[in-house]
Design a protein around this nucleic acid. Structure first.
Lengths: 140, 140
DNA sequence: AATATTGCCTACAAAACTGATAGGTAATTA
DNA sequence: TAATTACCTATCAGTTTTGTAGGCAATATT
């Protein structure tokens, strides 16, 4: 078994939350996030571009630059952050896009995976990122 | 991202279904299952012992031997078969047993994973293996 | 203009995991 | 005795994960 969500996705979530809490309308340099979150700066440098490409975060280069959320925190879902950083997020190889399993027509187990996948997506996509903040109901 | 369920679990499910359909109270040799399911015999030899150890399947060595389900097909859940073959089945490393993440007390994302894990287990554990058979409502 | 800061890009790599394969041993029946 | 079958250990190629290293490009401050 592998993990549905790897460090890429988990770190991305923490980076987004860090931005929400520590940017005050300003751009936050990655170095600061790295220190606060105790995540390798160089590794985050590999994760951030995915969030930028997906339009979740805006970046500015040069001195005084850094990253900033491009929407209000409660407009994000956990699912969209994870998908942007993980690339793909399915529970079994059978469901991987751009690939049709030759057994899919007669396979008795396929529906199990399809429903499982749907359930996972539903949960993560309907969960607002803002729920995870201190002020959210979960930690109250 | 990795896959929550690998070939180990997927093959195990197909092997159990094959046993349900093709054993008529008799022990079925692995070689037959390998041919019907088109799965490597040697690979299955690595998977079966896990199902035996978990008590899901009983084995008899020697000529005329093989494997047989130890319960009626509708007494199994998909979840117990997967757990027996996969060993562990959690969506993120944070939840791996025998290991306590030092951040777990203050981590804002942990509850996401706990709920996700619970949801997945609930679904798979409440799904009877017999649902996947031809006669099940899914393929009707 | 010079300098410091910051994001961005490519390449590399150790470790672990996946998906097997190979070969031999033990048990059981015909 | 011979054939069949499960069981056990070791090996292994390929991929993925989790980073690291180094330099280039852009921008603000001085």
């Amino acid at each position: 078994m592998g993990y549905l969500v790897s460090t890429k996705g988990r770190y991305a979530l923490r980076m987004m939350l860090d931005l929400a809490e520590n940017s005050g309308g300003n751009y936050v340099p990655l170095k600061e996030i790295a220190e606060r979150q105790d995540i390798s700066l160089k590794y985050m440098e590999a994760i951030m571009p995915n969030l930028v490409k997906a339009g979740l975060v805006s970046a500015v280069q040069g001195k005084g630059g850094g990253y900033m959320l491009s929407k209000d925190i409660d407009e994000y879902s956990v699912g969209e952050v994870l998908r942007a950083s993980e690339g793909s997020m399915v529970p079994v190889a059978c469901l991987e896009g751009g690939f049709e399993c030759p057994r899919s027509e007669t396979c008795k187990t396929r529906k199990v995976w399809e429903r499982l996948d749907h359930m996972i997506d539903d949960y993560l996509d309907s969960l607002p990122l803002s729920e995870l903040l201190e002020r959210g109901p979960w930690t109250a």
